[in-house]
Design a protein around this nucleic acid. Sequence first.
DNA 1: CCATTTTAATAAGCATGCTTATAATAAGTC
DNA 2: GACTTATTATAAGCATGCTTATTAAAATGG
Lengths: 147, 147
Amino acid sequence: MSRARNDATDQLSFELHTTARLLRRNYDRRARAHGLTRSKWQVLWSLAREEGVKQAELAERLDVAPISLTRQLDILEQEGLLVRRRDEQDRRCFRIYLTAAAQPALTTLRELAELTRGEALAGLSFEEIVQLKSLLERIRLNLGKEE
Amino acid sequence: MSRARNDATDQLSFELHTTARLLRRNYDRRARAHGLTRSKWQVLWSLAREEGVKQAELAERLDVAPISLTRQLDILEQEGLLVRRRDEQDRRCFRIYLTAAAQPALTTLRELAELTRGEALAGLSFEEIVQLKSLLERIRLNLGKEE
DNA sequence: CCATTTTAATAAGCATGCTTATAATAAGTC
DNA sequence: GACTTATTATAAGCATGCTTATTAAAATGG
């Protein structure tokens, strides 16, 4: 690869990190007033799509290390937004369920997401968003291949 | 915006974060053997492009909070890869310079970046990379507008 | 010229997510 | 059935980056 192409792709990597960080910062600033964060929003969002999953499954779905998820769940459980229930078939595992208190939080977080999204994606067409998502997904799959 | 579009763009946000995190993890695992990280690589890379900048300028360039940069510089200075020199015109500021020891580190980090890049971008055309970068840049600029 | 405001860098404290190590349980093997 | 291996969740410790607060120096305004 030429130096010029290397530079272009180095810049891509920095661009990717910076954009992700700014996006997180934007969302976290909004969520802070509610005692929540982008990271917890992602956990709750995933559980809203499918409850009753094991921690290991959830971690896999979120593409985070299991221990990274553990602490998030500790806090969210402590705040009463979810519960861990022992799996009776496999007593090593917990299955995670949202509580009733999670519903209004989800509604709020969804609204905040819309605000951040509105700022972030201003001027991008739906087609561009879809394409961006698709390109990122290919990179993510490349990186997740051998884990 | 419809719920379907919201979902698509929520997913974009998660995709962006996950991809960035996996990219960082991939690079950090390689850099670890050399006592460095992706974040420090980015600082050194920026300085390699232009030395003698003030911390505030560098932070602005990297799009990080000044205090976030301070600690990175502390460590990199301690490791002898850069030096802070007082600006004699404005004694509040330091100007940052790379040391000779930074050169071999830069070479190594550049090689590691190429490895991560090779994995991450497998199957993407140069045109796709350029487009991805451009889309991310637009989002970054949207988010950086009022700071 | 002095007082106020702004800017540059740092400090303290918090949240995320990693690596490596550990305890408990399940699954596989002899 | 007993022993070994693999899996699930957690603990300890580290790196990044944020918010809010602080200190020193410069810029501004009266």
